[in-house]
Design a protein around this nucleic acid. Sequence first.
RNA 1: GGAGUCGUAGUUCAGUUUGGUUAGAACGCCUGACUGUCACUCAGGAGGUCGCGAGUUCGAGUCUCGUCGAUUCCGCCA
Length: 599
Amino acid sequence: MIFKQRTHNCGELNTKFIGQNVTLNGWVAKKRDLGGLFFIDLRDRYGITQLKINPGNSELISIVEKLGNEFVISASGKVIMRESVNKNIPTGEIEIDVDNLEILNESETPPFVVEEDVKATEELRLQYRYLDLRRKSMVNNLIMRNNVYQTVHRYFNEKGFIEIETPVLMKSTPEGARDYLVPSRVHKGKFYALPQSPQTYKQILMVAGLDKYVQIWKCFRDEDLRADRQPEFTQIDIEMSFVTQEDIFKLSEGLYKRIWKEDIGVELPDTFSRITYDDAINTYGIDKPDFRIKDIMKIINISDVVKNSEFKVFQDAITSGGIIAGIKLNEIKDSKGIKIEITRKIIDKLTDFVKENGLGGLGYIKINDTGELQSPLLKFLSVEIQNSIVSKFNAGKGETIFILSGNKNKVLQTLGQMRLKLAGDFNLMDNSKYEFVWVTDFPLFRYEDSEGRYYGEHHIFTRPKPEHLKFLDSKDKDEILSIRADCYDLVINGIEIGSGSIRIHNSDIQKKVFNITGFSDEEANERFGFLLKAFRYGAPPHGGVAFGFDRTITLLRGLTSIRDVIAFPKTVSASSLMDNCPSNVSGGQLDELGLSLKK
RNA sequence: GGAGUCGUAGUUCAGUUUGGUUAGAACGCCUGACUGUCACUCAGGAGGUCGCGAGUUCGAGUCUCGUCGAUUCCGCCA
């Protein structure tokens, strides 16, 4: 097809081009017919330029009359000054006085109007993703994604890293997430797995001596989805040899500092905050604390203070090994600066919230403006204990203490959730801030009561801290659970953005970890023999980290769903609405693979 | 696997609480008018398997049960 090719795009023309003859190619975003005089908004991914079609040119008008939204056209003419300027768009001072117009392709009436403030549901947008991606904000999401790719590539190239591609078809490994499996035709009855992460490969690259590896790569996990979880997602995957945790922090801080600076113009501090896992849990009730609410509503354990009270609820908690803890809510104000009273209604709502989390109820102590205490708990607590609680929270007039009792994990977790809820409900955090924090010293194992076995908390290649190595031979549950690792998460605004560790590089230690997590030597050999073998040929000390690329872009764009930064995402039931996948396959395909479907 | 929300015109929604005449609005679409619009305006028109399937009822968009899809959360995600 021969057509007049564009000389410019729809976002670049301005008054400097006045008088020039130009040709634009693009999509009809809007046609306005004023009765002979037509205006057309022509759109491409760079912007929108207004075309003006004069009355009188009957040949041109007959073409214009046929135009509908989303038709693809080529328009030529002279750049002229507009009679009335549109200040809302960069090209708003000029328009094209069209003398030639060509329809390059027609469009059916689109199922929804392609406009910035899209009305369509996400379901429809996903079905017609190619229309949704014509919208400026979606284009900008993809452009941001591209910009960050480039920043990452440049950064690691400067630092002497090598990008190495690892296989997409790999060995299925137990542990961790469910694998996506790919049947082998050549080896009937055998399967590849899509990588949950390139973990084993990058460690083996370290054994190979490729001491600085990086890759922006897809990972696949067959688990249930969320707004921030897709079955396939992208990571910035990093591994280094001869490094400590500090080296990895420094590299990562440099990376994120660079991305924030280059791609959204925000200057981050040279080093990020740090908190240990135990402190995070005990102070914020969560392993991914949102440091936009760092210094308020910290969790305070008052078990000691109330242990001698007569109050049965507290006594029961203590006898059953639980705790009593709480948070303090400062005096809060609405957007007009008027004080918000903590009413019965608010407390009832919070009580419901607490009960949904499986706790009996919510205790509270309000300190009135006169300094007088107000609480249903007072009759159960001596004045001495009341005063100790107030002083432990350093509570003053107009403030409220919320108290929970029961199972330790549940109490901490619920208080953690309450902090987030209160902060959200009462606007207690600065949403324009980016709070980066490293959570360090994660436990090596967690114990699954229902299965009676240990799991690697991060993954089973994580090295215990040297001073805890001795506990690998222990049979004592508390000792095993007390093992900490140089294992860390990077958290931004309460979102887990990255995770890594210093790895085991010694096959004996690796075997012990396998054994604790329930692998016999035979099983470990069957599954990870290749890695253990590699470790016997001079494995250097090494460690690494992986960052969620989609989540990073989501944060940079101020969004909440990673689906908006992925060109072709899947729904929460892991299907793609545009191309209807997954789908059935023919009997012949199954035969070839030696598979049959269960009835 | 569990819980919540949603599903009505091409689209976004109202109508469902309390079952009852011909299911409405806006945007989009079609026709006509209009020479400076940029959410153009004005006049008119077409457009509905109320997600699907059972049930209750004289009668179901509305009530009940099931089911499918979207979405949010819990479990799960080393």
